[in-house]
Design a protein around this nucleic acid. Structure first.
Length: 524
RNA sequence: GCGCCUGUAGCUCAAACGGAUAGAGCGACGGGCUUCGAACCCGUAGGCUGGGGGUUCAAUUCCCUCCAGGCGCGCCA
């Protein structure tokens, strides 16, 4: 909340500059600093120090107690504690700005041909938290799941299931090489047999729906509920792919070659042109996907965000250039690649290939590790980082496990407040904020006041992990504070003021963990 | 071969848009409970940020190049 105040202050005076506000390194004076003097120095051909000295006296705000200049030209700002505490008291914790816009986040979208694997699970955690975050700060964000229920994959699924059914009946039958070999098809095959079997076309739909339902259940166990399950078949039925093709053709970006229809993706920097319609007149995945995105755009979102697995980065160029070619701004679509998860158990890497059937599914993971821990671990890394998931560490209920570290801080606060109440502290009385003056208290208050900045940054970068880091850091800060400052003492007024402070910390833990989709118990 | 991602302490990772002395956790070593929850806290050791060049007042961050690892390069999805 302070940073925004400084931004406002500087923007009024220097609206043309691209001002950066940083936090000041530890051991130096101040809380925030700006590079403004360096920017102006270049234009005015003066020394940054001189300019900083000129600007500093012009800056005045109730949010700032002190402004001073440091070599080689930084302007440092110190937070006015009374302003900070007063704002915390008024509940200004979240950077809520009304009507920021409508955002659609599409994620997981696992093919309905088998269980949800670990990379998709990570996407589920990230996507869900992203939506929670965006909604919390004033966007209208929704979760969407795209079901690829047409094309060769679905056919192959039906064939594989049929083979499994024959196998159960005692007839020999190999599953084709590109079919699905996983044993997870066996229960489905039995289910269909129990219903007296069914012809091929119905079997395909049945199998697809079976997995869509499994996915829905698994994700619900994981705490992720989608607002909408879009079907590729429905998109096709609505003739969206045809419309996409027409738009591309109108833009002059379509040509025919060897009996197939191509999109001139190379015009947009792709390394080759992409097939839209095959020689046997079938729409490719790209064309259907472009149609699907037309469908999204038609629903009037200000922003479309897609989370994709690392093996899909090859298709980004095609999709983005297609959207651009159809006449939509490239910024409309934001694609985030969620990098791989390598998974270790008993010091051994576990393979996740769907083809071999040696799969580590989200369900299996949830069976072994608490959902709180899984989600927290998935949100501890930037999406662009490969993630090492150590299941042995995840299972530890000790201080090594950061989830409990954060939850413990909150439980501890709630315990102190209970204790305070027992000691007769009037929790409902207005706190005298002026009594807060110990350095540990001030540090804690300042860090609490940064929550809104973390949410802003996190939302701008689409990286919920920044919140995770912040919460761990806040927990550390609180535990340190706790060790040095006694909250509940004989001094009732002081106790009340300190309880106010830790109440604010507890609020941040609750809000933050809620965004991560992790529980926040009062006792543990 | 082309494209994307990654390389920071023994291990796992931070450091948004270039900013000041590169920070945490785990592991190692040494301390701290008659006091609000020790699932906690404090201290010490540990770094040519993969190598080399460049741009800049300022580079872990941007550019070039090399090295190493991961992934992707179908008229599959």
């Amino acid at each position: 909340m302070i940073r925004r105040e400084i931004e406002r202050l500087l923007n009024v005076l220097f609206p043309a500059e691209k001002i950066v506000i940083d936090s000041v390194p530890r051991g130096r004076h101040g809380d925030y600093s700006t590079n403004l003097a360096f920017l102006l120095a270049k234009k005015k051909h003066a020394s940054p120090m001189k300019i900083a000295d000129e600007i500093a006296p012009m800056l005045k705000s109730p949010a700032l107690s002190r402004i001073h200049v440091e070599e080689p030209g930084f302007i440092n700002f110190e937070i006015a504690l009374d302003y900070l505490l007063k704002n915390l008291g008024e509940g200004k914790l979240l950077p809520v700005i009304k009507d920021r816009g409508r955002i659609l986040v599409e994620f997981v979208s696992a093919n309905p041909t088998g269980p949800i694997n670990i990379v998709s699970a990570r996407a589920a955690a990230v996507g869900d938290s992203l939506v929670r975050l965006l909604n919390k700060i004033g966007y209208d964000a929704q979760r969407e799941y795209y079901v690829n229920d047409t094309g060769q994959q679905a056919e192959m699924l039906a064939i594989s299931v049929a083979r499994r059914m024959r196998e159960i009946a005692g007839e020999p039958g190999e599953i084709p090489e590109h079919g699905y070999h996983g044993e997870y098809l066996i229960p489905l095959a039995r289910e269909i047999i129990a219903q007296g079997g069914m012809e091929n076309a119905r079997l395909k739909d049945y199998a697809v729906n079976y997995f869509v339902e499994r996915h829905r259940e698994t994700l619900a166990r994981f705490g992720v509920v989608f607002d909408r399950w879009a079907r590729e078949s429905a998109v096709c039925a609505g003739e969206y792919p045809e419309t996409a093709l027409r738009k591309l053709r109108a833009a002059g970006k379509v040509f025919e070659q060897d009996g197939a229809v191509f999109f001139r993706a190379t015009d947009y920097g792709d390394n080759r042109d992409r097939v839209l319609v095959t020689t046997d007149r079938r729409a490719t995945y790209l064309l259907n996907d472009l149609g699907y995105h037309l469908h999204k755009i038609e629903r009037k979102y200000d922003r479309l965000i897609n989370l994709l697995g690392p093996d899909h980065h090859g298709q980004i160029k095609g999709l983005v250039s297609g959207i651009t070619a159809m006449g939509f701004p490239a910024e409309l679509l934001e694609i985030i690649i969620i990098q791989h998860v390598s998974f270790r158990k008993d010091g051994r890497a576990v393979s996740m290939s769907k083809r071999t059937g040696d799969i580590f599914t989200l369900d299996e993971l949830i069976d072994q590790v608490p959902v709180d821990v899984i989600r927290f671990f998935f949100l501890m890394r930037s999406c662009s980082q490969h993630l090492d998931f150590d299941i042995d560490l995840a299972l530890k209920q000790t201080d090594e496990n950061p989830v409990y570290y954060v939850q413990y801080a909150h439980a501890r606060i709630m315990s102190i407040i209970r204790h305070g109440r027992q000691q007769g502290i009037d929790i409902d009385a207005a706190p005298e904020l002026g009594l807060i003056e110990e350095p540990e208290e001030i540090d804690l208050a300042k860090q609490i006041g940064r929550f809104d900045e973390v949410l802003e940054d996190s939302a701008r970068n689409f990286e919920p992990y920044q919140i995770t880091y912040y919460l761990i850091d806040l927990a550390r800060n609180f535990h340190y504070f706790y060790q040095r400052v006694k909250v509940v003492t004989e001094d009732a007024r002081l106790s009340r003021a300190r309880i106010f402070l830790i109440e604010q910390a507890a609020r941040v833990f609750r809000q933050g963990l809620e965004i991560l989709g992790v529980s926040c118990p009062d006792e543990m």
